[in-house]
């Protein structure tokens, strides 16, 4: 059983909205000073899903794969510290600013190059673009079925069984391996590596592949979706804070304002 977990390095999402800045001319986010990029939240949860499968069957091999800048090695190391076996870093100037289709082309080509992959796990969406398109495209390119928004992922006898999170129900879906599964936050928190695991991760192998290693070049990774503009929306609401010396006075002021506005 060989699982590949796809992880993306993104700007830290857990910053105050006031420190979020965009370079509108470059159509790029300006990373906040002194805040290191992190693993996209749902991707760390995908790594957790893989480790739970490995907990149940120690013969499972887990590979952490990331496409991005050279610094994406850090998010691979995090997955290795969680207990994954190997890492693959896909880095090349030709991979910069790809749309979902281009990114899926690179990632699926790399998964094919590994050759013996049974299950690809990803987060439900990357927390930068919030699209949730790439997992399905990768499945399409691999000719494999996809199951999205998993909160529990189990494999047995060549079948993957996934509990899918839907707003008003939980559905259980099965597919034959190989398959692609994206996971949601309801799966649970990713495990926190201990120091010896972090030390051991430093000794694990990370293979680096560039476009040429995958038989790809910038010309074959054309954009289907173009980015025309990126900006920070202006919020012009002005809040009216209720005056009052006691909670009772504040509460009564609010109740009266809401009644005047015919809201209660």
């Amino acid at each position: 059983m060989h699982i590949v977990v796809l992880v993306k390095q993104v700007p830290d999402w857990d910053i105050p909205p006031s420190s979020f800045k965009v370079d509108e001319a470059a159509k790029k986010v300006v990373p906040p000073q002194g805040v290191a990029p992190v693993t996209s939240q749902f991707d760390a949860i995908a790594a957790e899903a893989a480790m739970r499968i490995k907990d149940a069957d120690a013969t499972t091999k887990v590979t952490i794969m990331s496409m991005g800048a050279a610094t994406a090695r850090d998010v691979i190391k995090q997955g290795l510290a969680m207990g994954a076996d190997e890492g693959v870093l896909l880095t090349d100037a030709a991979f910069d600013d790809l749309d979902s289709y281009g990114a899926a082309t690179v990632l699926s080509t790399a998964v094919k190059k590994l050759g013996d992959v049974d299950l690809v796990l990803t987060g439900r969406q990357a927390v930068d673009w919030d699209s949730g398109v790439t997992p399905t495209l990768i499945a399409g390119m691999l000719g494999a079925p996809v199951i999205t928004f998993g909160k529990r992922v189990a494999v047995a006898g060549g079948t993957v069984t996934v509990e899918r999170v839907l707003p008003d129900s939980l559905e259980t879906v099965e597919a034959s391996l190989p398959a692609v599964v994206s996971v949601s936050n309801e799966l649970g928190e990713p495990r926190y590596p201990k120091l010896p695991q972090i030390m051991a991760a430093g000794k694990k192998q990370v293979t680096t592949w560039a476009a040429g290693d995958l038989g790809l070049d910038a010309g074959t990774l054309g954009q289907k979706l173009t980015l025309e503009a990126l900006y920070v929306p202006v919020v012009d609401t002005k809040v009216e804070i209720m005056a009052g010396d006691t909670p009772e006075e504040q509460a009564m002021a609010l109740a009266k304002r809401l009644q005047d506005a015919k809201l209660i």
Partner: peptide
């Protein structure tokens, strides 16, 4: 068609076009 969508957890808006 041009579409506008929230990105970066709602912090930004992205305007997209299509080539296909």
């Amino acid at each position: 068609l041009h579409t506008t969508r929230p990105a970066y957890g709602g912090n930004a808006r992205a305007v997209n076009g299509f080539t296909s």
